[in-house]
């Protein structure tokens, strides 16, 4: 707190199941996520999703990723390989070196 350059947490974010198409066809991103959001709350998954939309989404079709401010139903979120439902979903506070995977179940083959 107080310092000019905000501290960040290094994490890995993966996209698969077709979601990579929304993120410049890149499957893996090494991201330095701000430790806190604008209001000073510890960075959680909800903040990460917002952050990804703002800074990494390379496609105008944001609604294929986020719907009504939440992750689109049908997209699975795995936190260090565990279903985010086991980890507190959007409220999960992100830790250094976490791996967050977004995988779509919506795309066909």
């Amino acid at each position: 707190m107080g310092s000019e350059s905000a501290a960040t947490i290094p994490i890995t974010v993966d996209f698969s199941g077709g979601l990579e198409m929304l993120f410049d066809n890149q499957r893996r991103y090494l991201i330095s996520l701000p430790v806190t959001d604008e209001s000073g709350k510890a960075a959680n998954i909800a903040f990460l999703i917002e952050h990804l939309c703002k800074h990494y989404m390379k496609d105008p079709r944001a609604d294929l990723f986020v719907l009504d401010g939440h992750i689109r139903p049908g997209i699975l979120v795995l936190i260090n390989d565990a279903d985010w439902e086991l980890e507190g979903e959007e409220a999960y506070e992100i830790k250094s070196k976490d791996n967050i995977l977004f995988v779509s179940t919506l795309h066909g083959g």
Binding site: G17, M21, L76, L101, T105, H107, G108
Partner: peptide, 20 residues
């Protein structure tokens, strides 16, 4: 479908996903 995707993920199956 969720479990199918998770099965594929955890077994590291090689599948292709795209949109027509």
């Amino acid at each position: 479908e969720k479990e199918i995707v998770l099965y594929a993920h955890h077994k590291k199956l090689d599948y292709f996903s795209t949109e027509c």
